[in-house]
Write a protein that binds this DNA or RNA. Structure first.
Lengths: 101, 101
DNA sequence: CTTATATTTGACAAATATTGTCAAGACAAT
DNA sequence: ATTGTCTTGACAATATTTGTCAAATATAAG
């Protein structure tokens, strides 16, 4: 249950890499990476995909941390946050089973 | 499990009101209301609050439809949508019990 | 203390996304 | 054909998010 920043920082440090090195590998400005790892900036979808592929074995972990952070960010201050989450879950399930194509 | 547009349209029609009338009551352009009820525009937080108060007895229903729509919108195309929702739920629960102040 | 290297921070411009408005269109009832 | 309601598309106005740079801070080494 880590946020996207923690997740990415831990993965990078596990590999013993510098921001500069990951940045170079993925063409992402290291200062931007720094902000991402400190949850000061949300990575874009492209950036998360690139990062998740870079840390191969933890691909899904990265994506899920990111998506769940975005969800939390959207409703964290709302009293009805939890109730809305449950409804959203049902809606997603519904879309999954009934979606066209 | 209705979306925010359906919800608002049904409430308005239940009261037998015109877009123009609700618009006048809440200072919202009726063409904008039309788009909102057709899910062509997301209402802003202020607008949802005004609308939810206008349809008093269904206050929470309106808010929850809106919040859940925003959540769905954020992740509906993702394979990991459901997994992310579960994690987000845990994160929200965690924040709820541990929040500062 | 000075240098070297890594990371963080703040400010800002650039890019992107969202919102509100208007004029015109569609539709139904009369 | 006229009236009243709602819808649509295009666009300007606003707001939000993003990336970049220079400067600040931190840490370690000599």
């Amino acid at each position: 249950m880590k946020n996207i920043g923690q997740t990415l920082r831990e993965l990078r440090e596990l590999k013993g890499l510098l921001l500069r090195e990951v940045g170079a590998a993925l063409s992402i400005d290291p200062t931007l990476l720094s902000k991402i790892e400190r949850n000061d900036r949300m990575p874009t979808k492209e950036q998360v995909i690139a990062l998740s592929e870079f840390y191969q074995d933890k691909k899904n972990e990265v994506i899920i941390a990111w998506l769940s952070d975005k969800l939390v960010y959207e409703i964290q201050d709302e009293d009805l946050a939890l109730a809305a989450m449950k409804v959203a879950e049902q809606k997603i399930e519904y879309l999954k089973t009934h979606k066209a194509q």
